[in-house]
Amino acid sequence: MGAGFKTRSQNARVKPNSSLRVWADGVISARKTSIDSFNFVLHYGAPAVWEGIRAYLKEDGTTHIWLLRPHIIRLFNSAKILNIEIPYTVDELVKACQEVVEAAGGGDLYLRPIVYATQDAESVRAQSNKINVDIYCFPLKSSDKTSLKARISSTPRGYPQYFMQAKTTANYAVLHNCKNEFEGVDELLFCDNDGYVVEASVANIFIVKQDVIFTPPQTGSILSGLTRQWVAQKAQELGLQIIERRLTRPDIFTADEMFLTGTYMEVMPITVVDGRNIGKGEPGHLTRMLKYEFTKHTRGLTR
C-alpha cells in the first residue's frame, strides 16, 4: 500500500530539490516533454489517461508514496476501459515513480503519470496509435485553507457510467465550460442527469447527518476514489456508520457536516454550499476526526 524509503538527499540532510523531474521512456530529466499541435489527443481528447499521486515526508524523515500500487493499477484499469495498451507493466511503473521521487530529492511531492497517444490527427481512428508514458514529479505546496465554499453547478455530470470509471483527460473538459461558476467559491459540486449530487470537480463527496456518514454509491457517475475508499474503511474501523446512497440537494443543505476526499484535497471540509452554511458553518467533529486520522497515517505521526 504505497512505498516508504529514504532518499539519498534525506539521508544526507540535504534540502529536497525544488525543480520539476520527468520520467519518460526510462530516462529522468528536468525538462518537460512536448507534443505538437497536430497530436491526436489535442484534437480528439482521447486516448489519454492519468493519475494523481502524492508523496509525503513522514515524521521519521522518510518519503512515503501514498497508495502507489493501487494508483498504478487504477491507471491500467483506466487504460483498459479506453482500449489503450500501456507498454509497461505495473511493477515497471511503480519502480519508475520511486525513481523519479528519488531524483526529485523526496519530500512532499505530487506525481502525475500520464498515458497518451502520439499519432497525428489525420483520422479519428486510433488503432495504430503509439502510446507514450510520462511521469511528472514536482513539489506540492500545502494549502492554507481549513475549509472550502462550494456551489452546485448548473452543468450535469452526464457521462456514461462506465466512462466515469476511467480517469481520462476527456472527463475534465467540463471544468473549462464551468470556469465562470467558480467565481466566489473554491469548488463545484455536480449532479447526474437525474439531479442527484454525485461528485465535486476533482473529489468525492461525503455528508454527515446525526453522526451517520453518507456518500454517493459507486454505481453512480463517480470515479472510484482511493482516498474515498480509505476514509470509508477508516470510518468503519472507528465504529462509525457509513451508508452509500444517492444524495439530493436537500440532503446537502440539511447536512450537519460535509467533506470532500481526493488525493490532492486529502480530507477537506465544506462549510458553505450555494451561500448556505452546512451545519454550523465550520468543520464538524467527525470531519475533523477523519482528517486527523488521514494526516496521522500519511505523515506517520506517532502522537
Rank of each mutant, 00 (worst) to 15 (best):
K179P: 01
L140E: 12
F206L: 01
C191Q: 15
D134L: 05
A121I: 00
H176I: 06
D134W: 12
K130C: 07
E122P: 00
S123I: 04
D108V: 00
V133K: 10
S221T: 11
S201Q: 04
C191A: 14
Y196N: 12
T118V: 07
K145N: 08
I152N: 09
P217H: 06
P216V: 01
A200N: 06
A203N: 06
K149A: 11
N180A: 15
L226Q: 02
T118S: 13
A203S: 14
A173I: 09
D120M: 10
L223P: 00
E122G: 14
E181A: 03
T169I: 12
C178F: 02
A200W: 00
T146D: 15
Y162A: 13
V124K: 13
Y172Q: 02
A173D: 09
P156Q: 03
S123L: 13
Q218A: 10
I213H: 02
Y172N: 01
I222E: 01
I205C: 03
L140K: 14
V115I: 07
T215P: 00
Y162V: 12
K167G: 03
P217G: 04
G225E: 00
F138T: 06
D186Y: 04
T118G: 11
T215M: 01
Y116H: 05
K149R: 14
T169G: 15
D108N: 15
D194Q: 12
S154E: 12
G184C: 02
K167I: 00
I152A: 12
L140N: 10
V174R: 11
R151L: 10
T227W: 01
T155E: 08
I135P: 08
G158R: 05
T227V: 10
N171D: 01
A203H: 00
F214W: 02
I205K: 03
I152K: 09
M164H: 09
N204E: 04
P113M: 03
S128P: 00
S147W: 13
I205T: 02
V185C: 13
S143P: 02
A150R: 04
D211R: 13
L226Y: 03
A117H: 07
S123H: 13
V185K: 10
L148E: 04
T219I: 04
N180C: 03
I207H: 03
S143D: 10
E183D: 14
E122Q: 12
L188K: 06
G107F: 08
V133G: 09
F163A: 14
E183A: 14
N204V: 01
Y159D: 10
L148G: 06
F163W: 10
A121Q: 05
Y162C: 08
Y172R: 04
S153A: 10
I114F: 12
L111W: 09
S143C: 07
A170W: 09
E187L: 07
E122T: 11
I152Q: 09
Q165L: 06
A126H: 12
S224G: 12
I135W: 11
L109R: 15
G195N: 05
